[in-house]
């Protein structure tokens, strides 16, 4: 069985399980919407400060909602014991990581697709430009890459719900800063902005490589 068909089989299984249980998508989506609504009421939004507040609010909603889903990546399988069954199979551990990562990117993307129009309406910002797509994509990949790896580490501990944000937040700071600033740049005409997209891309590549190389040691006892 080829590496790609292993990835495909695990991803298919995860999507099918999630479509039927609806546990993760629903809670992630609702949480993202709640955060956006709360931010909308909490801040005094005026035309002149929107560009400073809105991108931060958007990415805080995405990050928090993502962590809800990321926390379930390995934990849900470990609680049911099905992770052991998966580990029994003669499957490349990188294939397990990649399938879980792709699943997470997909789940987070769905939440983002639902949350973005609501965010645009609530904050009255014109965000629907083609330039937003690579920002959201690279930001999502960065969060999911680290979140998937660390969900495996956290799943092996007792205080997994507490530990995951503590491990993930500090590491995703660069990608979140990049995403917030790049999103903000779409709303204003700023000069001398660093190449945020390039930085996010570099971050994603580095962490994806590190995660692929280390996942086997993290997941095996």
């Amino acid at each position: 069985m080829t590496f790609l068909s292993q990835v495909q089989a695990i991803l298919w299984k995860d999507i099918r399980c999630e479509l039927r249980s609806k546990q993760t998508w629903m809670s992630m989506g609702l949480f993202a919407l709640l955060v956006l609504v709360i931010f909308n009421f909490a801040f005094d939004l005026r035309v002149d400060n929107k560009a400073a507040i809105a991108p931060g609010a958007l990415w805080v909603a995405f990050v928090f909602a993502s962590l809800l889903g990321l926390g379930r990546t390995i934990t849900a399988e470990q609680e049911k014991g099905s992770m052991d069954r998966l580990m029994l199979c003669p499957v490349d551990r990188k294939a397990i990581y990649l399938a879980k990562l792709l699943g997470n990117i997909l789940f987070i993307s769905v939440v983002e697709i639902i949350a973005l129009p609501i965010f645009a309406a609530l904050f009255a910002v014109p965000l629907f430009t083609g330039e937003l797509l690579p920002i959201v994509l690279l930001g999502t990949i960065g969060i999911a890459t680290i979140g998937t790896l660390f969900s495996a580490i956290a799943a092996a501990t007792q205080a997994r719900e507490l530990l995951l944000p503590l491990l993930v937040f500090p590491l995703i700071v660069p990608v979140v800063i990049g995403a917030v600033r790049a999103t903000g740049a779409l709303m204003t005409t700023s000069v001398n902005e660093p190449p945020w997209l390039g930085m996010m891309l570099a971050f994603d590549v580095i962490f994806l490589s590190v995660s692929l190389l280390t996942f086997e040691y993290v997941i095996e006892e």
Binding site: M1, Q6, K13, R16, C17, K80, S82, P90
Partner: peptide, 24 residues
Amino acid sequence: GHQPNLYDELTVLENLLFFGRMYA
């Protein structure tokens, strides 16, 4: 194992087919 540890959301056949793919 002592616990069945199957995928509750998958059907009986889907469970077997998934592991069938894992073991080629």
